[in-house]
Amino acid sequence: MEKLSITEIKTLFHENRITKTEIAILKDDTRKGVQQLIRTYEKNKLKELALEKAFDEMCTYERNAFAAGKHFIAGIDEAGRGPLAGPVVAAAVILPENFKLLGLNDSKQISESKRDEFFDIIKENAVSFGLSIMDSQTIDRVNIFEATKLAMKEALSKLTPQADHVLIDAVKLDNLTSSSESIIKGDAKSISIAAASILAKVTRDRLMRDIHNEFPVYDFKSNMGYGTKYHLEKLKEYGITPYHRKTFAPVKENM
Rank of each mutant, 00 (worst) to 15 (best):
Pro161Lys: 09
Ile76Pro: 03
Ala68Phe: 03
Gly225Lys: 11
Leu167Asp: 02
Leu232Ile: 14
Pro87His: 06
Gln109Ile: 03
Lys252Asp: 02
Leu150Glu: 12
Asp169Val: 07
Gly69Ser: 01
Ile9Thr: 10
Ile38His: 09
Pro250Glu: 08
Thr7Gly: 14
Ala50Lys: 12
Glu57Cys: 01
Asn125Pro: 04
Thr160His: 07
Gln35Ser: 01
Thr160Tyr: 02
Lys70Glu: 04
Asp106Gly: 03
Lys108Gln: 01
Ala200Ile: 04
Pro161Ser: 05
Ser113Tyr: 00
Ala151Ser: 11
Phe99Tyr: 05
Lys123Ala: 15
Glu8Ile: 09
Ala163Tyr: 06
Thr21Trp: 00
Pro83Thr: 12
Ser132Asp: 15
Gln36Ser: 11
Ala194His: 05
Ile183Asn: 12
Leu131Ala: 10
Ala91Gln: 05
Asp116Gln: 12
Arg206Ser: 14
Ile121Arg: 07
Ile198Pro: 04
Tyr41Gly: 13
Arg63His: 10
Asp28Pro: 00
Ala65Lys: 07
Lys252Trp: 00
Arg141Ser: 15
Lys185Gln: 15
Glu97Thr: 06
Gln162Val: 08
Gly103Phe: 01
Leu207Glu: 03
Ser178Val: 10
Lys10Tyr: 13
Ile9Asn: 09
Ala170Gln: 08
Asn143Glu: 11
Ser136Lys: 05
Ala147Trp: 06
Leu159Gly: 09
Asn223Phe: 04
Lys185Leu: 11
Glu117His: 05
Gly239Gln: 00
Lys27Gly: 05
Asn44Asp: 14
Ile94Ser: 07
Phe66Cys: 08
His71Lys: 15
Ser180Leu: 03
Arg39Gln: 12
Leu207Gly: 14
Ala74Val: 03
Phe129Tyr: 13
Asp56Tyr: 08
Val34Arg: 04
Asp205Leu: 07
Ser190Lys: 05
Glu237Gly: 00
Ile139Glu: 05
Gly227Leu: 06
Ala155Pro: 05
Asn44Met: 15
Ile23Arg: 02
Leu102Cys: 00
His165Ser: 07
Leu101Glu: 00
Leu46Tyr: 09
Gly130Met: 09
Ile184Leu: 12
Gly227Asn: 09
Ala126Cys: 15
Met1Phe: 02
Leu207Cys: 04
Asn254Val: 14
Tyr243Trp: 10
Lys43Gln: 11
Met224Asp: 02
Leu51Asp: 11
Ala151Trp: 04
Asp120Arg: 03
Ile6Lys: 08
Gly82Cys: 11
Leu150Gln: 13
Gly225Cys: 14
Lys234Tyr: 11
Phe145Thr: 11
Gly33Cys: 01
Glu22His: 00
Thr40Arg: 15
Met208Asn: 07
Lys123Asp: 14
